[in-house]
Simulated assay, not measured.
Amino acid sequence: MNVLLVYAHPEPKSLNGSLKNFSVKHLEDAGHVVQVSDLYAMKWKASLDADDSTDRHANARFDPSLDSRRAFEHGLQSKDIALEQDKLRWADAVILQFPLWWFSMPAILKGWVERVYAYGFAYGIGEHSDARWGDRYGEGTLAGKRAMLIVTTGGWESHYSARGINGPIDDVLFPIHHGVLYYPGFDVLPPFVVYRTGRTDDARFAKIRDALGQRLDDLWKTAPIPFRPQNSGAYNIPELTLRPDVAPDLTGFAAHTA
């Protein structure tokens, strides 16, 4: 299988760097083909702006969505964006690896999403009517591919538990799982999370490495998070609210998981 690992950490000698190197070798040893987008090493431009189109006119008004659509449709995207889109088309599975900084992904990875997920590539696709509202949330360009997060955090696991001060880790990661990955069609696997990273010695790293190796071995076996597809009847369209009879006692993030 083809695996794309999008990696966002500035220090190659970090725990993240070691885990990235381990993942690549483990997957390749298992017979998979791996590409790595090391965003800091690539000096990835994080900001979405008018320069993302190769025929930018200096005095023209910049519209992020419409300019993205035009550039994508007419082959006018900057080369770095087009190359990352080609990697996503090529991949059978995508791994996003990053440290949890201020409850989200590092800015450079968010910028990768904002620029690579162009209008017409990852959103703005399909029929919009009273019967369906585009090809998204379970459908879309990336449907049929798998995705998983590898996340590190300095907080204790209890800090991210059901009653922990930081909120449940599934809630913290919901915008990435549901919005960044499920929206364009990925089957989203449960995350691999390493807690309390500052307390990682050689013995603990060996245990983390072994657990990660098992998750990578199971990349095509693990059941995805059972998010509710948008166009399969659970949601009223075009309101895009859950029908009254679907999870009637639930609100918030939990209501969107079957």
Rank of each mutant, 00 (worst) to 15 (best):
G179W: 14
I176N: 01
Y182S: 08
I208E: 02
F205V: 08
H178C: 02
V193D: 04
V172L: 12
D202E: 15
Y195D: 04
R196D: 13
R215N: 04
G198H: 13
G167M: 03
A206K: 14
R215L: 00
F174E: 04
I169H: 03
G185L: 07
P175T: 01
T197I: 13
F174H: 15
G167T: 02
L216K: 10
L173A: 04
D218P: 05
L189Y: 13
Y182Q: 09
T197K: 09
G213E: 02
N166K: 11
I208M: 06
A211Y: 03
R215K: 12
G167H: 04
V193C: 02
G198N: 11
D187L: 07
L212Y: 02
R199K: 13
T197V: 08
G198I: 05
Y195V: 02
Y195P: 11
D217K: 07
G213D: 04
L181G: 10
D210E: 14
K207T: 13
V172R: 13
V188Q: 07
K207Y: 05
V180E: 11
R215D: 00
R215H: 11
A211I: 00
P191W: 08
V172I: 14
I208A: 06
A211L: 11
L219M: 06
I169C: 01
P184D: 05
D187V: 00
Q214L: 07
R215M: 01
F174Y: 15
D201G: 12
F186M: 06
D171I: 09
Y182W: 12
R215A: 05
P190W: 15
I169Q: 00
R215P: 03
V194S: 06
G213S: 00
H177V: 01
Y195Q: 02
P191I: 01
V172M: 10
P190G: 01
A206S: 15
G213Y: 10
T200A: 04
P175Q: 06
D171H: 14
F205G: 11
D218C: 10
R215S: 03
G185R: 13
D171V: 06
V194H: 08
A203P: 12
P168W: 11
Y183F: 13
D218M: 12
K207F: 05
L189G: 01
H178R: 13
P190N: 07
F192Q: 05
Q214R: 13
L212T: 03
Y182H: 14
A206W: 12
I169K: 00
G185W: 10
V172Y: 15
R196F: 03
Y195W: 11
D217W: 07
Y182N: 09
P175A: 01
